[in-house]
Write a protein that binds this DNA or RNA. Structure first.
Lengths: 339, 339
DNA sequence: AAATCTAACGAAACTACTTTCGTTAACGGT
DNA sequence: ACCGTTAACGAAAGTAGTTTCGTTAGATTT
């Protein structure tokens, strides 16, 4: 059942049917209704491939999970962002195409080639750690891209991230107000911009509040996972006196750190107060519930969709949008617990 | 840059280039190499839309999240399945297309229409609770479907789910071996087959072990979320003596139940032992860590991909594949803790 | 040398739709 | 009656591939 059938059934030309589908004004009302009725009855739908072949618009958005470390659906932060993004971009009439990097990366294909192959109208690239070169080829191309937590500087690109320096500032400020002066930091080697900013933001905030950071209280964790936080905290404890308060650059790191603390007989928050970052679901269920910084993933996803839409439809300058983080106080920071 | 350009540059016909792309045997070795080299130099890639237009194969798999309750990327169980599925189907040369139900559901479009529009080669349908009619239209159509946790009976469909009766059996058995005789159940109204089987499987297992189930110890939770488990457990406690052990049909329900227990001054597992189901990430971080049944999501996703592949390429009978569940013992069941 | 076979390639039809530009008929104005 | 205008529609040329079915030239057979 194609447009030709419909045209034949309605006794009009293919062109007329096409115009009715696409709401052209130069069609008489009777014929429009007649054709519409036939399309309804035959459950006819146009073919997207024929359409994109002719229009060069696929109404498809490519989703790129960049980075070697397992950044996929299992990453809770990105899942939230992509969820909000999908909702909004769906409202704007687009569907999501997830590139399977498994096969084509082996065969030396790259994201740009994939994007061209499918003729996606734009891409959202989501990144955890450092990303492969191929992502920047895509960024430099003329396919509109919006980056989440990755600095895209192409002429058809924008990017969105939380104000990561502010994240650290809010944590330090909160600790300071609660009376802590001896604050430590655990985070991964700063391979990505957000992690860089969290770390430097932390150091800047410490200085701003006139506190000094002991070298043994600032450790790299290697990765982002619970085990990394656990191992790193163990190192910190065993190499000397732990800090009175700890900021972990990731909730999972914080959760791992709390496990290490508990294992060494230290109580949270009575002995060491802990704050994480991201507000993943698990934070609510840990013991004690983890105080953290919530990234406004809902807003990030939605903004990403709207920005990308603009990028695809009007010409626009490269822009970066910062999203305001929010402190979520639970109990691991010792806010209301006895100190 | 299209196939015409390449043909012109190589001094051959379009047909020849196409044959080279598709590995036809009737091409001389010299010309093949010459054309291949030009394709390499110009970074030419064929267009997927032109291709699917002509071949009727898109190499795209549609992903449908069915069910009213928020079954999307935020559902940890399905995320694991889809992750494994994506990996395997990617290896087989397919990419994933996520239908945006936001817009088109409003406009009265259905999954089948979407599938036809994009000419996807197959669909994976993932379901939480009861699903809309539209899913069964898709099931009954000739697009190959594989269902996760949903009974698809179409001639081009298969489905995969955990052996849910066995899940309950394993839980009851474990509780029995630990000496518990008074076991309760919390689960949602059985709108989906898995939930039906978990509940009836639980009842059957209780009978099998010669235990009786007090009516007040088997409650419907309304939903699947933490709050539902919390509220339901509160009801169970306040309406009489709680059971000595509890099986919650979902980890989140279990986590909520533990919160209610704690709030009423009851210890887990000393006063009430708890076991959940699914093995979501949070289980490891709760207090106490939640004993649960792990669904083999890795295997489910992989099997789904391979079954769907067969379904798309050979003709096959409708089949159902059951996946073996596995007990993950942590501490909430009181396995090694003092009882 | 004629007949037959085969390897290597191309013409053309086909896939389903969009869009430009031209055509037609009706209508009102003079 | 003639002209200009406009509304409504269609022919045809794209869009980028695939695939069938010839065709040709050279090799092989008789």
């Amino acid at each position: 059942m194609n447009i030709k059938h419909i045209a034949h059934l309605a006794g009009v030309s293919v062109a007329t049917v096409s115009k009715i589908i696409n709401n052209y004004p130069d069609i008489g009302e009777e014929t429009r209704q007649r054709v519409l009725k036939i399309m309804e009855e035959t459950k006819y739908r146009p073919s997207s491939s024929a359409r994109t072949l002719s229009t060069k618009k696929s109404h498809l958005i490519g989703v790129v999970f960049a980075g070697k470390l397992n950044v996929d659906f299992s990453h809770p932060f990105f899942v939230q962002v992509i969820n909000a993004f999908k909702k909004q971009i769906g409202l704007l009439g687009y569907d999501l195409l997830f590139f399977s990097n498994e096969k084509f990366l082996e065969e030396g294909e790259d994201y740009l080639a994939r994007s061209n192959y499918f003729q996606v109208d734009g891409c959202i690239v989501i990144s955890g750690d450092e990303v492969e070169r191929s992502v920047f080829d895509l960024d430099a191309s003329d396919v509109p891209c919006i980056g989440i937590d990755i600095e895209l500087t192409g002429r058809h690109s924008c990017y969105i991230m939380s104000d990561n320096a502010k994240i650290s500032l809010k944590v330090v400020e909160h600790f300071y107000m609660l009376g802590y002066r001896d604050i430590g930091y655990i985070g991964p080697e700063p391979a990505s911009l957000p992690m860089k900013q969290r770390q430097s933001g932390f150091e800047a905030a410490m200085q701003m509040f006139g506190m000094k950071l002991a070298e043994s209280h600032s450790l790299y964790s290697g990765g982002y996972q619970e085990e990394d936080g656990y191992a790193t905290m163990l190192r910190m404890i065993d190499e000397g006196k732990p800090p009175r308060a700890l900021f972990a650059a990731t909730d999972l790191l914080a959760i791992g750190a709390m496990r290490a603390l508990r294992e060494r007989g230290l109580r949270v928050p009575e002995d060491v107060a802990v704050v994480g970052c991201d507000d993943i679901e698990a934070c609510r269920y840990t013991f004690p519930p983890l105080t953290t910084i919530k990234q406004d993933t809902e807003r990030m996803g939605k903004m990403a969709a709207m920005l990308l839409f603009d990028l695809m439809n009007k010409q626009m300058d490269n822009r970066c949008i910062q999203v305001e983080p929010e402190l979520v106080v639970r109990t691991s920071c010792g806010s209301e617990a006895s100190r």
